[in-house]
Structure formats: structure tokens, C-alpha cells
Design a protein around this nucleic acid. Structure first.
Lengths: 138, 138
DNA sequence: TTAAGTGCAAAGGCTTTGCGGTGCC
DNA sequence: GGCACCGCAAAGCCTTTGCACTTAA
């Protein structure tokens, strides 16, 4: 449960109010490896919080992305998806079912952003995106 | 102009009819480094082909993606974007203006897909996706 | 107290679908 | 001539926006 303290701290840092809705959204996101969409988070949160609107979930997730406690996942169509794991890792996207699988790879992580880009741009994210067909869909 | 012969060949290969609309779309896509959206291609093509519908452009682009002569670019919101360059290269996405800049990097290209993924999935695409702010937007 | 946050509802943007007419092979 | 393709229009999906009410600080 100590993630709640951590979460509260991040909100305070960014002068965000710690509302029950925000806590509920973060609780369902935290530890979730499914890269859920707004809709999916909404359905889960709604079970124990029936008055919450989809719209609030959506705005909450965007706010979380703004303050850097979740990532917006690169996508290939379909609804926007979120990732509570902001540490360096990479994604495999199944183009048939939409499933996103995490993987880690030190060699990828170690590669530097090319000079050509680093010199001119502010780079805030770096990720390898693999696409294809997952075992379940073959 | 020899790309038209090449394009025609790819269509034949996949039993697609070579229509004026398809040729027009491919002509505007070919060599385009802007990763255009359906809308952008539509506006260009429309100038010399005023009866063409946005819808046809969209379906045409999806068909091209199906047969592998264009890539659908990984995205962070906004309309779907297409890339006629199917050779190995990578993208920097400006999160403010949406511009996508190509870059190439041999070291990235050389890295193997991790065993864990390669063993289980059919991997058809591999790309590094950088995000941040471009020089014009800083 | 009050600025930020929430819920609702409507609007907006983009994509997909269905269908009758058209034209490439 | 037949089937794939096109254009149009409507529907669908998801996201964004505006506004009045509520609430955390």
C-alpha cells in the first residue's frame, strides 16, 4: 500500500488535489501490465465507485501522463493506452488482437540517441516498438 | 517514373486492380518524408483529381499497408499516418506539433529481437520510437 | 473560501461500413 | 461480363469541450 503515499507525494509536487477518483484510478493502474485503455480502467473502477464518469477517468489519465507518472503507449490504431511502468522497457504489439507485451533488453537500453537528433531535439522517451502476431493469434 | 512500373507489379502480385486513384495516391506518397495522414494525401491528390473521395484515399492507404508497400506509423494520438519508406529506419515524434523525423542507426538495426519474443511471436516490424520536442517547438 | 476537480451532455474528429453505380481485367 | 473498386452518406468509436455543481486544501 505504500504506493499511495508515493502517489500522494507526486500529486502534491504538482499541486494536484488528491481526490478519491484519482486514487482509485491510480490504484487500478498501478501494477497493471495490460496497458489498459481508458475504457478498461473505467470498467474496473466503476465496480467500486459507480458514480464515476468515463470522462473523469480519461482526464485523470491524461493528467497522470502530464506529470509523468504514467506513459501514453505508442499505438497502431484503437483507443489510447496507458502504462504505469515508466522505467525503460519495450513493447511488442500484436496487430491482430491488440495485446501489448513488455520486454526488456539491456542492449537496446544502452544505445545512445543519435547525435543528429540529440543535438537538436529534447528527447523525453525512447522505446523499441515491435509489431507482429502474438502466440495466441497465430 | 519507374516507380509506377514497380507499383503496378506489386498490385498485380496481389491481384489488385491498377486504378487511376491508386496510382495517384501512390504517386503522392512515394518519396514523401512527411509521414502524411489520409487527409493530407487527400488534399494533394484532390487538386488534380477533384472527384476523388477522402474515403477512397483512406481505403487505398489501408490496402497499401496490407500488401506491405507502405507502413502505418506508430502514433501518439491524432490521425493515422503513413510511411512509404519500408526500409529499416526510426522515428522521432514531436509531441507538441506532431512532426515525425526519420533517422537511421546501424546499431539499432543490428540488435536482434530478444529470444523471449522471437521464439513465440511472428515479428514483422521493429522500430525505435523517440518522443520529445523538436527544434521548431522548443 | 476558492480554485481545482467532477459529472453530464453535446460536439468534434477520424475511421469504418453499407450500398448502388462504375470501370478495370 | 464479372468482380473489384469507387463515391457517397451514415453510423460508429473515441476524445474533447463547456458548463454548473462539488470538494479538497
Amino acid at each position: 500500500m505504500e504506493y499511495i503515499a508515493w502517489f500522494t507525494e507526486r500529486c502534491r509536487e504538482h499541486k494536484l488535489k488528491v481526490t478519491p477518483q484519482r486514487i482509485a484510478v491510480y490504484r487500478h493502474l498501478q501494477g497493471n501490465r495490460q496497458h489498459p485503455s481508458t475504457e478498461q480502467i473505467f470498467r474496473e473502477v466503476q465496480r467500486e465507485f459507480p458514480t464515476m464518469s468515463l470522462d473523469t477517468v480519461n482526464r485523470t489519465l491524461l493528467t497522470f501522463a502530464d506529470i509523468g507518472i504514467v506513459d501514453i503507449v505508442e499505438g497502431y490504431g484503437g483507443p489510447r493506452r496507458f502504462d504505469p511502468d515508466c522505467s525503460p522497457h519495450h513493447h511488442f504489439h500484436c496487430l491482430r488482437c491488440g495485446r501489448i507485451t513488455d520486454f526488456r533488453n539491456r542492449d537496446f537500453d544502452r544505445l545512445e540517441v543519435p547525435e543528429k537528433i540529440a543535438r537538436r531535439c529534447v528527447v523525453t522517451g525512447k522505446r523499441v516498438s515491435l509489431t507482429g502476431i502474438c502466440p495466441e493469434c497465430r
